[in-house]
Amino acid sequence: MILELDQVTVTFSTGPPLRRRALHAMRDVSLHVGEGETLGLVGESGSGKTTTGRVALGLRRPTSGTVSFEGRPFGRRRRELAGRMQAVLQHPHWSLNPRMRVGRSVAEPLVVLGRAERGEVREMLEQVGLEAELADRYPHELSGGQRQRVSIARALITRPGFIVFDEAVSALDVSVQVQILNLIKDLQADFGFSALFISHDLGAVRYVADRIAVMRGGEVVETADTETFYTSPAHDYSKQLLRAL
């Protein structure tokens, strides 16, 4: 078991002072991601899937419940997880620092760990189907699909055991989406990482995931093998998502 969320609840307080209200972004969410497995997480905005991603990455501490990574509960410091867990995030436009050359962005996770970069950047760019020469370009010279490939290269460079893809293809053109989804599948076969694939698009999730969890209103309403989501999901809401495809 690479990642396990056990009865995780996250509560935000919102509203003006004196009239604060508690908002449950996650309510008793239990999920697990197995070795080499891709867990898909489907839900709409406000369903709590983004918060779930942040909790899985150790960016947000749960209000209650435990999160364990590789069998051990998260430590107090986020840095302990550095390099072993990475993310590919939503917006290709903002996923790379516009003031940094692509190569430096890709190398950053290595530099942060204090490791020297010895040709890994070029190697990794080629792995994700880009020319090594792109390392010297700035992000604005790249297309959305290319930028998302660069994000994937950056996530893979420390050879992490676990990667979170948060809406990683949602902002891309349809014909490019499939290119990236295929790339993720191929890289997973090569590198053997586990993944949490978060998206509002059941079609994309179904295409890459081994198992799928459906979230709504902060709760997981159904978890089942991907197979189920081609034919007959149990929960009404899952059925509705399937119909909308």
């Binding site: 699909g145 053109d173 989406q177 499939v178 989804l181 079609g203 994309a204 081609y230 495809l245």
Partner: peptide, 24 residues
């Protein structure tokens, strides 16, 4: 044809879509 066949939702279980190479 490529556009109709490249939406992930259209893929049957276990099939691999072959998207058009390149970009617009």
């Amino acid at each position: 044809a490529a556009l109709a066949g490249s939406a992930p939702a259209t893929a049957a279980r276990g099939t691999r879509l072959e998207p058009v190479p390149g970009r617009p």
